[in-house]
Measured scan of single mutants.
Amino acid sequence: PKDEAKKKVKEAIKRGDEETAKRIAKKYNLDWDDAKREADEER
């Protein structure tokens, strides 16, 4: 599900692992900028 994928993307971003985050986002066709902004807001 997309929500689960987005959570994984945000967790990867918070760990500083943007490569993984981008790969997950691409795989699930998520909006990378959107997920990154959300992760930054939660930090």
Rank of each mutant, 00 (worst) to 15 (best):
A12H: 06
K36H: 05
A35M: 15
R43A: 13
K26V: 08
R23M: 13
I13K: 01
D40L: 13
E19N: 06
I24H: 01
E18A: 05
K14P: 01
K26A: 14
T20Y: 12
K8L: 15
A5S: 03
D17E: 05
K6G: 04
A12K: 02
E41V: 08
K14D: 07
G16R: 03
W32P: 02
E18H: 12
P1N: 15
R37A: 11
A25P: 00
E42Q: 08
N29R: 04
E11R: 07
E41T: 10
A21C: 02
L30M: 05
G16C: 11
E42H: 06
N29V: 02
D34M: 12
E4V: 11
A12T: 02
I24G: 00
R37L: 07
R37D: 05
R15N: 11
K8I: 11
R15P: 01
V9T: 02
R15F: 05
E38F: 06
A21N: 00
D34W: 08
E42S: 08
E19K: 10
K22W: 08
D33P: 05
W32C: 05
A21H: 01
K27S: 07
E4D: 12
D33F: 08
K22V: 04
K10E: 05
P1E: 15
E19R: 10
K22R: 15
A21K: 00
D40P: 04
R43K: 12
P1K: 13
E4H: 11
V9Y: 05
D34E: 15
R23P: 00
D17C: 12
R15M: 10
K10L: 15
A5T: 03
A12R: 02
A39P: 03
P1W: 15
A5V: 07
D3F: 12
R43L: 15
I13Y: 11
D31W: 02
A21D: 00
A39Y: 12
I13C: 02
I24Y: 04
L30I: 15
K26W: 08
A39G: 04
W32L: 08
A39F: 11
W32V: 03
K22M: 13
A12E: 02
G16W: 02
I24M: 09
K22C: 13
R15C: 12
V9E: 00
R43T: 12
D17L: 05
D17N: 04
A25H: 00
L30Q: 01
D17G: 01
K27A: 13
A21S: 05
K14R: 13
D3V: 11
A5R: 03
K8M: 15
T20M: 13
A12S: 04
P1D: 15
E18V: 14
K8E: 09
E18L: 15
E42C: 12
A12D: 00
D40Y: 13
W32E: 02
E42R: 04
E42K: 05
K2S: 11
A5N: 04
G16Q: 02
D31I: 05
A5M: 11
K6Q: 07
K27N: 05
P1M: 14
E4I: 12
D17S: 02
R37N: 07
Y28D: 06
Y28F: 10
P1R: 14
R43D: 12
R23C: 14
A12M: 12
D34C: 11
L30C: 13
G16P: 00
A35W: 05
N29E: 06
D34A: 13
L30H: 01
A21W: 00
Y28P: 03
E41D: 10
T20D: 08
A25K: 01
T20E: 15
E11W: 06
P1S: 15
K6E: 04
K10N: 06
D17R: 03
